[in-house]
Design a protein around this nucleic acid. Structure first.
Length: 287
DNA sequence: TGACGACGTCGCAGCTAGGC
DNA sequence: GCCTAGCTGCGACGTCGTCA
């Protein structure tokens, strides 16, 4: 017997939800642990750096709750710890360097004041909904941080009065193309300099994707085209292997430069040099 | 105005390594 | 053997910009 193939609309109508609804007030062991740790923090008489260090002596496994207090999510906490202490292990830090950990959380994230203000506060329904909407804020700031490097590059290209495009693709050997965040062209539209801008404060396979993108740029480029990469953000400290792959492209001369926001003056110098080689620097009127 | 792609953030799983 | 941490990859998520 041959079954009739359903129409697209019929198939569409049979689609259903895959994921189960998640209880907004969870009762998992992890949620219970956080509640217990929060309760023990509420029991501390006065919140000071010293009393928090003493709290860590008996609650080192709950040290992550202090990070939650100042709004650090798991990944943000790891990245910031790795950036400052060279390790993401907060439990071990709480055991071996409790003074340094508390001092850092207080200096960087205002822990003592924040904890003292929050621990006995009565939260309203609206406060809870605002907290649940936190992921929207995260996504919004994510876009902004990603644009920070691009904006800096754009400003430099404008200063040099280059003919450029942003967030586009360039064409290299055999008509193959690759993505780039800044592309410098001549007046005839010939593409001469492609720049990648990859700023990540968080981690994930997207950093690996970024490396693949730059590798693609390196493999596609013509011998006459320059490829530069501006890479920054503490997320790369959690993906050192990926960062090394980009650095390897630089040391093997497959790309022509690698920079951070701290070395943008080098980027400007090299961009000027490459643009001059291709006669792309426009003479300033009156000169 | 809605659809869509691109983007960065995030949590998690699986594996490995080192210290006790 | 157990615990902890590091590394890597996967995929869901929300927002933004673009385009028709």
């Amino acid at each position: 017997m041959i079954n009739r193939v359903p129409s697209f609309e019929e198939y569409l109508g049979t689609l259903g939800r895959l994921s189960a609804h998640v209880d907004p007030i969870p009762t998992t062991p992890e949620a219970d642990r956080i509640r217990r740790a929060s309760a023990s923090l509420a029991d501390i008489g006065e919140i000071t750096a010293q009393t928090l260090v003493r709290w860590l002596e008996t609650h080192s496994v709950d040290a992550d709750v202090l990070a939650l207090t100042v709004g650090l999510t798991q990944e943000k906490m790891k990245n910031n710890l790795r950036n400052h202490f060279g390790t993401a292990g907060i439990v071990t830090l709480a055991r071996t360097k409790p003074h340094e950990l508390i001092e850092w959380l207080d200096t960087e994230f205002d822990l003592v004041r924040s904890l003292a203000a929050q621990r006995h506060r009565v939260y309203e329904f609206g406060d809870i909904l605002v907290a649940r909407a936190g992921t929207r804020v995260t996504a919004k700031t994510a876009g902004a941080s990603g644009r920070k490097i691009e904006d800096e590059l754009e400003q430099i290209a404008e200063d040099l009065q280059l003919n450029f495009q942003t967030r586009t693709r360039f064409t290299g050997r055999n008509g193959q193309s690759a993505p780039c965040d800044l592309l410098v062209l001549d007046d005839e539209g010939r593409q001469h300099i492609a720049v990648a801008a990859k700023g990540f404060d968080s981690t994930g396979s997207k950093l690996t994707d970024a490396v693949r993108e730059i590798e693609e740029m390196a493999s596609v480029r013509l011998p006459t085209q320059f490829v530069m990469a501006v890479i920054d953000g503490i997320g790369w400290k959690s993906r050192k292997a990926d960062l090394q792959r980009i650095h390897g492209l630089w040391t093997s001369h497959q790309i022509d430069g690698m920079y951070t926001l701290a070395t943008l003056s080098d980027f400007r110098r090299d961009l000027t040099r490459f643009a001059t080689l291709h006669d792309l620097i426009r003479p300033v009127a009156g000169e």
